[in-house]
Every structure is written in C-alpha cells, then in structure tokens.
C-alpha cells in the first residue's frame, strides 16, 4: 500500500511573469506544502517588485477550510505588502462545495482562468470588492 503513494514534492513552484507571480496548485496538496508556499510567497513579494499574485487552482480537486485559510492568508499578506491576489480557475464542484461548507472567501477576487486573471491586472483598476449583499459568517476574524 505504501508503495503506491506518490512521493510529494515539498515545494509548490512559483513563476514570475514581470511583476506578477503565478502559482499553480495541482492535485493533492499536503498541508505542509501549503504552509511552505505561504512562507515562500511572502518572502518573494517582499524581495521583488511584485504587484500581483495569481493562484491557479484549476487543477485542485478540493478546497477545504485549511486550504481556504491558507489562500485567504496569502491574499492578506500580499495586500499588506502592496500586492493584489486573484484566485483563478476554481472548478464548479469546488465552488458548490465551498459555499455549502460556509467558506466563500470574501475579499479574495476570482477569475475564471489565468488569462483573465492576468488581464484583470493589466486593465482593471481594481477587482470587484467582496459582495456586500449579506454578511458572511465565514469572514476571517
């Protein structure tokens, strides 16, 4: 049984496209990798002229409350260091599940895919603000 487990790489690659960082999350993301990514990214933003971060989750099967917290924290860290974060490519089944779970990631702008996320950085002055229609109980404290 152990033999069929895939060895997991310890780091998520971070690609720099000009002043934008592109992170592609894929498949099974271990908790330790997510936490490592959070740390790596914060350093990258601090030490290079990064103004935008795109996190591509089109290859992610599930987002649970742990990964949701990591994504929200990455966006918060980036914002405090003058960079904007866009979450790109969430699968429909993941979106449906997240809402039912009670996690709507307010404050984290989304795009349907990476291309559109990058376009938002080029053209849009500001991504959509979090939906004000109703208070959300999943707001970060």
């Amino acid at each position: 049984m152990t033999g069929s487990r895939r060895a997991h790489p310890s780091r998520v690659p971070v690609l720099a496209l000009g002043a934008t960082l592109l992170i592609t999350l894929q498949g099974e993301l271990h908790d330790s990798m997510a936490e490592q990514l959070q740390e790596d990214l914060t350093h990258r933003i601090a030490h290079s002229p990064v103004t935008g971060v795109v996190i591509d989750i089109s290859g992610v099967d599930i987002v649970d409350s742990f990964l949701g917290r990591v994504l929200a924290e990455i966006a918060s860290h980036a914002r405090l260091m003058a960079a904007r974060t866009i979450l790109a490519g969430m699968r429909p089944a993941v979106a449906i599940t997240l809402v039912e779970l009670g996690l709507t990631l307010p404050g984290l702008p989304t795009a349907l895919d990476v291309e559109r996320a990058l376009a938002m950085f080029e053209h849009g002055p500001c991504p959509d603000p979090p939906h004000p229609r109703r208070a959300n109980h999943a707001d970060l404290p």
Partner: peptide
C-alpha cells in the same frame, strides 16, 4: 485550532 471553525459544522452540511 488554526482553521476557520467551519470544520465540523461544515462537514455535516456536506
């Protein structure tokens, strides 16, 4: 813990 506190209640809804 370190989550968002949605674990048990959220799991129940799923």
């Amino acid at each position: 813990g370190s989550g968002l506190g949605m674990g048990l209640s959220g799991a129940k809804r799923l």
